[in-house]
């Protein structure tokens, strides 16, 4: 089997992480893994709604109750068990998240940072209603979420990424930027 290529995606809320994953998968295939999936399935089994707040809280209490790297190690194992040579890891957020992947995959791990204007991201989040309660949030709530423990380090880590995409334009322009990056990878 070919060696695995791992693409790590980091970015603020509603910045375009999902969109980038979709663009990559449409042309190149691959499997997308997210920490949200692990958290969401756990909340589902507990009959707790998957609001962004509950997702963030669950992540924090699991890290506190067990160890800081618990979600990333779980992701690493999921990556190992996934039978695909292109894997997109969506949900890198905290200091220390990137290291396990770099250690394990070295040059085959590529980090892409997707960012956009805060107001633009807020508007997009209202439209899509991906997480419970998202379409009702105020800009204030949205900004508050961005300051939470699991979100506030993203810009800093993003700056160290191999590739940075500013997603303030159209979908077509986003696609072009993604394809340019994929050619390099």
């Amino acid at each position: 089997m070919k060696k695995k290529k791992i693409i790590g995606i980091i970015g603020e809320q509603a910045g375009g992480k999902g969109a980038v994953s979709n663009i990559i998968r449409k042309r190149y295939g691959g499997t997308r893994l997210t920490t949200s999936d692990i958290l969401r399935r756990t909340l589902d089994s507990l009959y707790i709604p998957s609001s962004r707040e509950n997702l963030i809280n669950l992540a924090l209490i699991l890290k506190k109750g067990f160890e800081n790297k618990i979600l990333m190690y779980a992701m690493l194992r999921d990556v190992e068990n996934t039978n695909d040579d292109l894997i997109i890891v969506d949900g890198i957020r905290m200091p220390g998240d990137v290291e396990p992947f770099k250690e394990e995959y070295g040059k085959d791990f590529h980090l892409i940072y997707i960012t956009a204007d805060a107001k633009l991201r807020y508007e997009r989040s209202l439209k899509r209603g991906e997480k419970a309660g998202e379409s009702d949030a105020s800009f204030d709530d949205f900004t508050k979420n961005g300051k939470k423990e699991t979100e506030k380090h993203i810009p800093k880590i993003g700056k160290t990424a191999e590739f940075i995409i500013e997603n303030n334009d159209s979908e077509e322009e986003l696609e072009e930027k993604v394809f340019k990056i994929m050619e390099k990878i």
């Binding site: 692990i38 756990t42 089994s45 699991l62 190690y73 779980a74």
Partner: peptide, 12 residues
Amino acid sequence: TILRDILDRLHK
């Protein structure tokens, strides 16, 4: 049971 399922998903 539910504890085992969650731990399993976390690969713990």
